[in-house]
Simulated scan of single mutants.
Amino acid sequence: MASTDSDTITFPAASPKQTYVKISALDAGHLTLPESLFVTDAEPGKRSTVPSLSFLIQHPSSSSTKGTTNLVFDLGLKRDISGYRTAQQHHISQRQPTTLSPDVAESLQAGGFQPSDIDVVILSHVHWDHVGTPSDFVNAEFVVGSGTLDLLSNGGGKLYPVELFNADELPRARTKELPPVRDGDIAKAFERQTAHVWAPLGAFPATVDFFGDGSVYVVDAPGHLTGHVNLLARVAPGRWVYLGGDCCHDPRILTREKGIALYDDGCGGKRSVHADTEVAAATVKRIGEVVGVEVVVAHDKSWREANRGRFWPGSL
């Protein structure tokens, strides 16, 4: 649903010389999900092959020799499955069938771009189906949410052991981690290093104005995994797009037709696909209540099927 800046009190009005960005969806592989692990009241035994969407965001930039800063949000699946670790391979075996081509690099090339043309890669989080092949992006700065680098190196407890992540996958010299989303000396020190400062924006308690011109905001979207972030972008006067990553895995959760499924955690308790189900549910509720914004989550099969003309070189 589109809106005008004047009837949306959630977000700030456009400035007189407002910058807008062009967003294009990118195919980045498919995986197959059992519905019972993701939504309540699932049809018994139903499995759906869904995309892991990525997005190209082009920002007009006088500081770039190209006149545009090219940003990619999420990298989907690796085109070479041998690049996954043993524990990841076991997980992937439960998500078959998968489609590995086209991946992000191939999708960019089909529209006339090369991976080397990309200036920035922002990862919503570092699960296997979103990290893709970082080595393709030789000129890009990588940006990840707070705590991500520690998660890659040390894991996140018994449900998220280090074996599920590739610690050496991101180019550390070109990777910046956003500051912690809290007050205090640690957060301020991070902010001084990155020049990124968290601030509330409408319904969202913590956002970063990424380009400093109100065109693209990184949104803290906690609950799914340490460092999980989303993007909110202005694409035209009165038009906003929200890229939700894995805030939820089925758009029916956003519309409250379904809830977040719980299942046996193997340790005598219940869990969901989120690290913190309660926090994830609060994040989804916040996103679902935002007015006048097109929300696209990474694994929305129906959105992909209905919007093929909006894939690169088309646009949202």
Rank of each mutant, 00 (worst) to 15 (best):
L123F: 03
V39N: 01
S135E: 13
V126I: 10
N70G: 02
P16H: 12
S107P: 07
E106K: 08
R79W: 08
L37F: 12
Q18P: 10
H127Y: 10
S82E: 13
P44L: 09
S64Q: 06
F38L: 13
T99K: 09
Q18S: 14
Q89D: 09
P97H: 08
D27L: 13
V120R: 00
K17V: 13
A13H: 11
G29Y: 05
S101Y: 12
A13C: 11
V120G: 00
R47T: 10
P51E: 06
G45S: 06
W128G: 02
S36K: 14
S61C: 09
P16Q: 07
G67M: 08
S61F: 04
P134S: 06
S82Q: 13
K78Q: 14
R95V: 13
H91G: 10
S15L: 15
K22P: 04
Q114S: 15
R95C: 13
R95D: 09
K66D: 05
I57P: 00
G67K: 04
P60H: 09
A87E: 10
P97S: 14
V121M: 01
D129C: 09
H130K: 11
L31E: 07
Q88F: 07
P51A: 12
A25E: 02
L100W: 07
R85D: 13
T98M: 14
T98G: 11
K17E: 15
F38I: 13
T86D: 14
Q58W: 03
H127W: 12
L123C: 04
G132Y: 02
T68E: 09
P16V: 12
L123V: 04
G67Q: 05
S24I: 06
H127V: 09
S124A: 12
I57K: 01
F137W: 03
F38Y: 15
L37R: 13
L123R: 02
K78V: 05
Q109N: 15
P51F: 03
H127C: 10
I57R: 00
T98E: 14
E43T: 12
Q89T: 09
S93V: 07
F38N: 04
S82A: 14
S124N: 07
Q96V: 06
G67N: 05
G45Y: 06
L75K: 06
D119P: 02
T133D: 11
G83F: 05
S124V: 04
V138Y: 03
D129K: 03
E35T: 11
P34E: 10
T86A: 12
K78E: 14
S107I: 04
A28L: 11
S63A: 06
S82K: 13
Q58K: 07
V50Y: 01
V131A: 05
Q94W: 08
V120W: 00
V131Q: 02
V143N: 00
F55E: 02
Q94A: 10
Q89M: 10
F113T: 01
T40L: 08
T65Q: 09
V143A: 00
D41S: 14
P44M: 10
K17R: 14
P97L: 15
I81C: 04
A105E: 04
L108K: 02
V72Y: 01
A87T: 12
G76Q: 05
D117W: 00
K17A: 15
E141W: 02
I118V: 13
A105D: 04
G132I: 08
R95M: 15
I23P: 00
A13F: 08
V72I: 15
V120L: 02
H125G: 06
S124R: 05
P115F: 01
A42M: 06
W128N: 03
V138D: 08
D119I: 03
H30A: 11
F73N: 01
R85W: 08
